[in-house]
Simulated assay, not measured.
Amino acid sequence: MTDEPDQVAADLRPSPPRTDTTRTVDHLRREEFSAFYRAHVAMLVGFLVTQGARTADATDIAQETMIKLWKAWSTIDSPMAWARVVAGRELVRRLGAIEEDHIDESEYSALLGTASDIDDWVRRDDYQRVLATLPARQRQVLVWTTEGYSPTEIANQLKLNAATVRSNLRKARRTIALHLGKGAQQ
């Protein structure tokens, strides 16, 4: 890992004396980011877990994404969409690099502490098990949809063709419907 947290800490330290206007803008920028972080970091972790990340990996990716977001904060128009794209890409990179080793599910991150509401949310119903059986792209598109994004918005954020997004969404929904239908018959 790079020394990004040290850089973020350095960015947050008071700067040499400047004009009152500059201080006010910097203070407002920090407050705005702080409020965003508190309101959305757990949601970002849940977004990643839903796409197949272990909780510990999801919290690490979310934290790294928030550090990158802080550095670019003043240039980002849609911070949650930006964070989802960046975090989702990192998750894809990590999932591609994972070897099938023993995974310790009891591992937690300092970001969430020990057992969290996310753990209960992930285990609460059959939906999560079905979701885990979907191919990565179908799962990704479905999760973005449940987060309130339209296929066109998803296509724009993920740099995909809108027809591809709709096709993957249709396939994912069909798979879930078939699974739920089988469960009702048992």
Rank of each mutant, 00 (worst) to 15 (best):
A155G: 03
A87Y: 02
D20H: 04
R124G: 05
V41M: 08
L111T: 07
T145H: 12
T22S: 08
H40S: 10
Q140P: 00
D6L: 09
S150L: 12
Q186G: 14
R137Q: 05
D6P: 01
T21H: 13
K159D: 06
N161A: 12
W121S: 05
L160H: 06
E153R: 07
E147K: 12
T21V: 13
R38P: 01
A184E: 15
D6Q: 08
L28C: 04
K182D: 15
D11T: 00
E64P: 02
P79M: 00
D26Q: 12
D120E: 11
V122Q: 12
I98D: 15
D60K: 07
P16G: 11
Q51L: 05
V130S: 08
V122S: 07
S109M: 10
K182L: 13
H27C: 07
G52V: 04
E100S: 15
R89W: 10
S109F: 06
L111R: 07
H27Y: 08
E31K: 10
D11P: 01
P5F: 02
T24Y: 09
S109T: 01
R18K: 13
W82C: 02
P135V: 10
P151Y: 02
W82A: 06
T24C: 05
A53Y: 02
H179D: 12
V141F: 01
Q7Y: 14
R89V: 04
S116M: 03
T50S: 15
T59W: 04
T145C: 04
R166N: 11
G52R: 10
V130T: 11
T175L: 00
D126R: 00
W121P: 00
R29I: 03
W70Q: 13
A155V: 03
Q185I: 12
A53S: 13
D125G: 14
R54I: 04
A177H: 09
K68S: 09
L111Y: 03
D60V: 08
A56I: 14
Q140D: 07
T19P: 05
R173H: 12
K171L: 15
D11M: 15
T65P: 00
I176S: 05
T75R: 14
L12H: 05
T152C: 04
T175Q: 12
D101V: 11
T175V: 13
T164F: 01
N161V: 03
R18D: 09
E147L: 08
L95Y: 00
Q63M: 11
M43R: 14
I103H: 11
Q138E: 15
L134G: 01
R38E: 14
S34H: 14
R38F: 04
L48M: 03
N156A: 14
P79F: 00
G181S: 13
E105L: 13
A163K: 14
D26T: 04
Y108W: 07
E31R: 09
L178P: 03
Y149T: 01
G183Y: 00
V45R: 05
G46T: 07
Y127V: 07
I118E: 06
Q51P: 03
E90Q: 15
Y149N: 05
R173E: 14
Y108G: 01
G46I: 02
F36I: 05
